[in-house]
């Protein structure tokens, strides 16, 4: 059902937790009846330097959350904001069609966190 990369990230998720003084926080998913992610980013000089997550959800959504933290660290805010819905699915070695929304949720988390960062920093763009 799942690739070995998905199983690895599900079984041993990276960067679980939160950043109390995060520069950007992204909440995505369906808080009423589905999977949800809270993604915390630390950003310095226009680059993501740290990322943590908390996710309620299925194995694919936990794996996607873990993978997205690894994917986003070291990227510029511009690069991060341009993440596509399938980016994390590709990085995970593919997801079943019924689980593609988990990849999209992780991407939404990144986009929302970058928006949050930009709104907090007004129009000042360090990148």
């Amino acid at each position: 059902m799942y690739s070995s990369t998905v199983m690895d990230h599900f079984h041993s998720p990276r960067n679980v937790g939160d950043l109390p003084d995060a520069d950007g926080v992204g909440n995505a998913g369906n808080p009423i009846s589905g999977n949800t992610i809270a993604l915390y980013l630390r950003i310095a000089d226009g680059t993501v330097t740290d990322a943590k997550f908390r996710t309620f959800g299925c194995a694919a959504s936990i794996a996607a959350s873990s993978m997205v933290t690894e994917w986003v660290i070291g990227r510029t805010t511009e690069e991060a904001a341009s993440i596509e819905n399938h980016t994390i699915a590709v990085a995970l070695g593919g997801l079943p069609p019924t689980k593609m929304h988990c990849s999209a949720m992780a991407a939404d988390g990144v986009r929302t966190a970058i928006e949050d960062y930009r709104s907090r920093h007004g129009t000042v763009r360090k990148d």
């Binding site: 998720p13 939160d18 808080p31 949800t36 992610i37 809270a38 908390r54 996710t55 309620f56």
Partner: peptide, 9 residues
């Protein structure tokens, strides 16, 4: 529950 901590209503 640790992974989801902040997500529990």
């Amino acid at each position: 529950r640790e992974v989801s901590a902040a997500q529990v209503p």
